[in-house]
Design a protein around this nucleic acid. Structure first.
Lengths: 354, 354
DNA sequence: CTGTTAGCGCGTTCAA
DNA sequence: TTGAACGCGCTAACAG
């Protein structure tokens, strides 16, 4: 045993630094900066992080040394020491839905501003995804999770990790997952869509609803029903879909059969499937059937006719979710539920009943 | 100075471990596993990483201890030591193009299999994006970059970092960026599209090309021209767009005016804009005008009529790019250019000339 | 206001 | 085959 061997360390290091001298080939460390600025490493740290008061002279010398050496702190050393990954996992169980891309961009944009990094967790394979998230969290690779559920069940494995894991739910809410939530006013948006349809003179209105177990779907359905009910009306029919295009296609038969002159679709993807099948069958839109969607995905404005819909502020939801996660990580408690307003987008698929 | 103070460390640690005893409240470290398995930490490391031969008995005890404690190595400590982030940056300068989502999912899927993590670098703001990538690389937060260019210029800042940065280009190629490339056979795909159009009897064929400075656009244009030329034909007109929807809309006038019976669009987004405007103007598709796109984005199959197009294997491109990056990180040199085959997707927008 | 000291949790020499 | 010692680069606690 050589208990004193570390005694030599300082000297060895001084030598090594001297060797590297002018032509620095390896990555500069905080010690190199300290040497160049003729201060200690901890002072450099204090200057860079503003953790302790420093004199202007020192600050300048450090800044100069940093610039000259092109120093940048090594993320892993810093993260190890700070016990923070400065990263969040962005969970997207349904990457086929373009709405979540918008949310993702919002998360990324807020993360950029906050010095955070976004780690992608996207896959169609649910079990794989859950295991991956759990792994990321447990390896401390991320400090928390933004979960864009899209109607998928909440990973049981994450609950096992204890409810202490910082998670925020974006867009969709789970009854059994007690996490803060940032989404939009689904119910209000649905009401507005129904109101607009009623104002166009429709009375026989069908509803193309989303999956029963999904919160947003239930909110939207409730909103539709509310508004129809306020006129003493019941829907011509209620068809359930799964928020994806094929289910919209499949719903067309029942909806056409119901004699409805308009249909309130709980999301754009299903509306698109419905419209596609209707047009192929010779049903004119909005001449024979009016359609109002929900989400305002890009495709909605690529169609002919252009889809009238309810716009969800995807980016803002993403930004809000990231913000909520940040306040959580700062040790505070964010709003339990943040509901952003939706916006009616009036385009071409809504007309008056024939 | 107390050079020997570290002498007490082992004892202190033993005490701390004993204290934590049965009810372990803090995160288990490799030392906890070592204690539980009655071996040393380095042995645990050797077992887990397979770095050194170990006896079956030890292996079993370690595995048991790991399972019981729920141990998982802390990413940052490991990364610091290994000098590897086990992460790649996924750069998406044009997140509005859904084709890149497919590429992203391919990258993610390969990363999952390889124990890598995907860090999102997506933004419309080019300058911000470049700075961010440079930062990630320099802070060693990522080991390399998968760059889905989409016609954007290559970040100059990255070249300044020296050409030693592991980067692979996905989908699009830069003449001035000497990095390995994984994409599809754009020229061959374009030839096939042109051939199919010719085989349908079209002779007056317009080309809706992409931006002149983009490699994929030039490849596709060359492919179209090749195939038309093989029949002694010249295009009815060549209109340049920027790969986005509005430019397709704007191109419709010139194309209609040219008297073409078919148009070869260099990507789906522009084809969609073109079709949209044509339909609104009462031009029937494919009755009056046939259209063949490129990419096969999801929206292509949501339209009415369904878009005929050339399918690029987005996922496979993503997977291939990630694979190329991995071989680069392993110290080997990947294929300089990997061209995956495209596939003709025949749907409804291609008919015979009237 | 600055410097010294002591780890963060891991992987990796070497000796034994 | 195993284990003791050490250092990756950084920051936090304390001492001056």
């Amino acid at each position: 045993m050589l208990p004193n061997s570390n005694r030599f360390e300082p000297e060895l290091e001084t030598i090594r630094q001297a060797q590297s001298g002018v032509s620095m080939t390896r990555r500069p460390t905080i010690k190199d900066v300290a040497a160049a600025a003729e201060v200690s490493a901890s002072t450099v740290s204090a200057v860079l992080n503003g953790t302790a008061p420093t004199s202007p002279g020192v600050r300048e010398r450090v800044a100069e040394a940093v610039a000259q050496l092109g120093y940048q702190a090594e993320a892993h050393a810093r993260n190890l020491r700070r016990r923070r990954a400065h990263a969040v996992g962005l969970v997207i169980p349904d990457p086929a839905n373009p709405f979540f891309i918008e949310v993702a961009l919002g998360v990324q944009s807020k993360a950029l501003e906050s010095g955070m990094v976004v780690v992608l967790c996207a896959t169609d394979e649910a079990a794989e995804l859950e295991a991956y998230c759990a792994h990321l969290l447990q390896a401390r690779y991320v400090d928390g999770l933004v979960f864009t559920s899209g109607g998928h069940r909440f990973p049981g494995e994450l609950n096992l990790l204890g409810s202490k894991v910082p998670v925020v739910l974006a867009d969709d809410l789970f009854a059994d997952a007690p996490y803060p939530f940032v989404g939009s006013d689904n119910r209000g948006g649905a009401q507005a869509a129904a109101r607009l349809t009623l104002d166009h003179g429709h009375r026989r209105i069908a509803i193309l609803a989303g999956p029963a177990e999904v919160w947003t779907a239930e909110q939207r359905l409730a909103g539709y029903l509310d508004e129809l009910g306020s006129e003493g009306l019941a829907p011509a029919t209620v068809v359930r879909g799964d928020y994806r295009v094929p289910s919209g296609r499949q719903a067309s038969a029942a909806i056409l059969e119901s004699g409805a002159t308009a249909v309130l679709a709980a999301n754009d993807l299903m509306a698109i499937g419905l419209i596609q099948t209707c047009l192929q069958a010779g049903v004119r839109i909005p001449g024979d059937l009016s359609v109002v969607g929900f989400d305002d995905i890009p495709t909605a404005s690529y169609l002919a006719p252009l889809l009238s819909t309810v716009r969800q502020p995807g980016r803002e939801i993403g930004r809000g979710a990231m913000a909520a996660l940040l306040t959580q990580l700062a040790g505070h408690t964010p709003d339990d539920r943040l509901l952003l307003p939706t916006e009616l987008v009036v385009r071409d698929t809504l007309g008056t009943p024939s």
